[in-house]
Design a protein around this nucleic acid. Structure first.
Length: 409
RNA sequence: GUGGCUGUGGUGUAACCUGGCAGCACAGCAGACUGUGGCUCUGCUAGUCCGGGUUCAAAUCCCGGCAGCCACCCCA
């Protein structure tokens, strides 16, 4: 092959595209049910915006564009950042809260692997302007509904919930403030690494209170020491949030070790995994009350989540929740010669008012016309030949029942 | 950026170990079964990732690239 598909990109052939569209439709539908409206941003943004946050690995992963004049651009690597920029531009005139979602593609320059592409799709849902627990509950609930509406149940998925404030307050009893970021990062990946490695990494950071951290992470809501005020407040928040979630509580597990890598989260954080643990996280989100301000806007609380398409589709396929059953056209009309093609086309135009119609362009013989119609799963076939052209009527054959019926042309 | 595995028609594979005409299945195209399908049959299209080396002879052995997948890193 002279020209191969670029590394880490995907082609969607009709059957895969049909699946993608169905999933996207479902995600859009669910978001709209909660009053969220779809928005869209440019594929590229100024490099300044994209690399605003210091010291993030993500900067290495930005697909930068060739510098044309003074301006430097890069392709967006997520949707939260562009959406936040978009919010800021009209911040003063937008009535709060602002409920937006975007479902689009983005790019990261990194080594591809299962469920991770260089070009990928993501649903991003953001709620700007509300700092209430009701807002967090809405976001968590919507996130779960996105998955539930696709057919996933509490047997398939679990949402791990945590509060960064709680985690921080508890950790500060054990470690110095300067180590917080690094330790949280380690905690976030604890589930994926052996216990010894976790301990070693902590020691590398100069932390020797490994067992204290471990027992902290393994504690559940009721066993946490709530003598400190911050801890008490955070615990109360979590408890209230769980109450607000009502029936959806069965999807939720409190888990102190869910931290999320991105450092812009400030409060509630959550991540959804499949229960088998086979896939990387399929959804992640949380509260990020500082981001708008960090980008130069007026301080605005915000919360949201993102769902990646790659892992989601792998999981849905695994659970047998998506099938590539493609419906064929209602009619296939074959013409036996160029002379009869105009009759076929006229008939097709008439039928297309109500049906999907495919017309032969190959000029095959009758047997092969039918074979083809069969293969594309057409429901009914009409063959136009000399006889039909003369008599002005044709036979409509139902391919399922085999019944035939005459129509006039 | 690091490591492991794998490269044979469009797809899935056989032949690789032990060098000797690259085979099979599916898909595609054309046709037969008198202008009405699904079966069957026939024919056609199409391949050894690239470059070097060894050899009378390389898909096969050796070296070097490249590509893909998977894992790490990080994350969706």
């Amino acid at each position: 092959m002279a020209f191969a598909r670029p590394k880490g990109t995907e082609d969607f052939y009709p059957s895969q595209m049909a699946i993608r569209s169905r999933i996207f439709d479902s995600l859009r539908n669910t978001s709209q049910k909660y009053g969220y409206r779809e928005v869209s941003t440019p594929a590229f943004e100024s490099l300044g915006l994209l690399s605003k946050k210091e010291g993030e690995e993500i900067k290495e992963q930005i697909f930068t564009l060739e510098k044309r004049s003074k301006e430097e651009f890069g392709l967006r690597f997520d949707l939260t950042v562009p959406l936040t920029r978009m919010f800021m531009e009209q911040q003063k005139s937008l009535s709060k809260p602002v409920r937006w979602f975007a479902l689009d593609r983005m790019w990261r320059y990194e080594r591809p692997q299962k469920g991770r592409m260089r070009e990928f799709y993501q649903l991003s849902v953001e709620l700007f302007g509300a700092d209430s627990l009701t807002a967090d509950a809405e976001i968590v609930s919507l996130a779960l509904d996105c998955l539930i509406d696709l057919g996933l149940t509490e047997k398939d998925i679990v949402l791990k919930l945590n509060d960064r404030k709680l985690l921080q307050a508890l950790l500060l009893d054990i470690i110095p403030k300067g180590k917080l970021e690094a330790v949280i990062r380690l905690i976030d990946k604890r589930a994926k690494i052996p216990a010894e490695v976790f301990a070693d990494e902590l020691k590398k950071e100069g932390i020797d209170k490994v067992s204290e951290i471990e027992s902290l992470l393994d504690s559940d809501l009721s066993s946490i020491d709530s003598s400190k005020k911050e801890v008490r407040d955070a615990l109360a928040s979590i408890t209230t949030l769980l109450e607000l979630l009502g029936d959806k509580k069965k999807y939720v597990e409190f888990d102190l070790s869910t931290a999320r890598g991105l450092s812009y989260y400030t409060g509630i954080v959550f991540e959804v995994f499949d229960r088998t643990g086979k896939y990387r996280s399929i959804l992640g989100g949380g509260r990020y009350d500082n981001l708008v301000e960090m980008f130069g806007g007026q301080p605005t609380p915000a919360t949201g989540f993102g769902i990646g398409y790659s892992t989601l589709s792998l999981l849905l396929e695994d659970k047998g929740l998506i099938s590539a059953d493609e419906a064929g056209p209602d009619y296939f009309i074959g013409a036996l010669s160029e002379g009869q093609a105009s009759i076929a086309l006229k008939l097709a135009t008439k039928l297309r008012k109500k049906s999907t119609v495919e017309v032969d362009v190959m000029g095959r013989n009758v047997g092969n016309q039918l074979k083809y119609a069969n293969k594309i799963k057409a429901r009914k076939v009409i063959i136009i030949g000399e006889d039909e052209a003369k008599s002005g009527s044709a036979v409509v054959k139902d391919l399922e029942t085999g019944k035939e019926e005459k129509i006039s042309l």
